[in-house]
Write a protein that binds this DNA or RNA. Structure first.
Lengths: 249, 249
DNA sequence: CGGCATCTTGAAAGAATTCAAGGCTTGTGG
DNA sequence: CCACAAGCCTTGAATTCTTTCAAGATGCCG
């Protein structure tokens, strides 16, 4: 049985870590100065309740004070993929920071208490003046999403395709592309290395390249690849279906 | 052929992103205010050269201005595991931030230019007053290392063992443990969920639990697990050792 | 105490890995 | 500019492992 209901979220209380009795759980070493961040105590989460769901707007980062929260998402094939088992003191929701809305779910496996970190309205034009630290956090967010995407798909060919599309997008092949749905790229890494990244043997990657060509999804000539089909939107930053997700929200 | 030599590292030049001609590569949206971070231009990396090696002291974060850099590490079985293919604008070395020294290698797949980000000596007592943002970055670092560890090992049983040890350490079973090498834990998640996290089928996890018990590495009774053998030192692992890092710098 | 979800185990089927060998690309040197 | 050598890529076949399907056992919660 699963609790699908979310309690109507009460207005969370502003909090000060330095005065919190659970301070040492979130900050074992020493409590940082709060800087420009607001900390809000969230209502207690009961086992089975969701902290956020797929498609919900980003509400900030969370810090888990106690309990265990599972973060998971649905892969393109509809399978559930668990991204993180968060325990006391862990940071949650970083993946969603760079996406407009979260493409993952967060559900409590035990009763749990969380605090929410929020940057005040400076956000609007924050891109102009934000701390380096904050921008780096966003990069970290991207890294986590990348890693999540690299998580082994059910099929090696699908994993390879996702990898190539990600690589094309991040290479900024947008400008250099010949046609709308034809992106040419030159890979700086070998088949073996791609395999070591995706978790497959070198030969499996070879055969997957072959299969991509058979299916007309790409033209393969050594390390020169031409991808066919629509480019992956950089907005939501992921392999495929996030645009859809964002649109839904 | 591979270039194993590292040029003796010249004293890098202090730099200001706002004045850099490649500014838009690192900061496509807008250049952040530098805050308390020093930016240093590093010498150009030639293809095959290393930016850092396993065991080297943490030198700060890097921002890739151009080229492609591969970050990889050796798994326990001696296999190479690629963690990231960094492209222009990507952040490098975040995993190493929370470890005293990096347990990964970084090698240039193409000629590459990087800048190094360094927090000045405030570090010494920074644990007292560090920005929340900076502390969160360290959490992000931990997350990345966690994810790296969850990367599929060659054997499901080894992956499960690593998962359990990580869980035990992060649960803080240190205090509650009965003997030095006997840690009892109660898992809040099911076999299926562990499988969804590690990338294996539910039944495979079951059989791996069985195998762990056979090998005397653990006692399994439903969700109650007793781990035998020495605990995983948190040093190389993840969550805590930030204090040390700050002290080193 | 009963019911349902979770866990466990077995056997068959399916996939990736491994091993092996040949072809191709790339960079080097004549 | 061409030839050579080294490394990389590709392909085939056998093996090994995981997955899948199915059914029974166990444990947990109401």
């Amino acid at each position: 049985m699963e609790f699908q209901n979310n309690l109507p979220r009460r207005q969370p209380d502003a909090a000060d870590c330095a005065q919190c009795f659970m301070e040492t759980r979130c900050w074992p070493e020493s409590t940082p100065r709060s800087g420009s961040v607001e900390v809000h105590r969230e209502p207690v989460l009961r086992r089975g309740q969701s902290l956020w769901r797929q498609g919900e707007a980003y509400r900030g980062l969370f810090l888990l004070r106690s309990g265990c929260i599972k973060i998971y998402q649905h892969s393109s094939q509809g399978e559930e993929q668990v991204l993180q088992f968060a325990l006391t003191g862990d940071l949650l929701g970083l993946e969603a920071m760079t996406a407009g809305s979260s493409d993952s779910h967060a559900v409590a496996l035990t009763d749990a208490m969380v605090c929410r970190l929020r940057w005040p309205a400076v956000d609007a034009d924050a891109t102009q003046v934000a701390h380096v630290e904050r921008r780096l956090l966003q990069r970290a967010s991207s890294l986590l999403r990348q890693r999540a995407r690299a998580a082994r798909a059910t099929e090696p060919t699908a994993a390879l395709l996702a990898f190539l599309q990600d690589f094309a997008r991040r290479s900024g092949v947008h400008e250099a592309r010949v046609a709308e749905d034809q992106r040419k790229l030159r890979l700086p890494m070998g088949r073996l290395e791609i395999g070591q990244y995706l978790g497959y043997a070198e030969e499996t990657i070879c055969r997957s390249f072959h299969r991509l060509q058979e299916q007309g999804l790409a033209t393969v000539a050594g390390r020169t690849i031409v991808l066919r089909g629509p480019a992956v939107p950089p907005t939501t930053a992921a392999s495929e279906p996030m645009l859809r997700v964002a649109a839904v929200s």
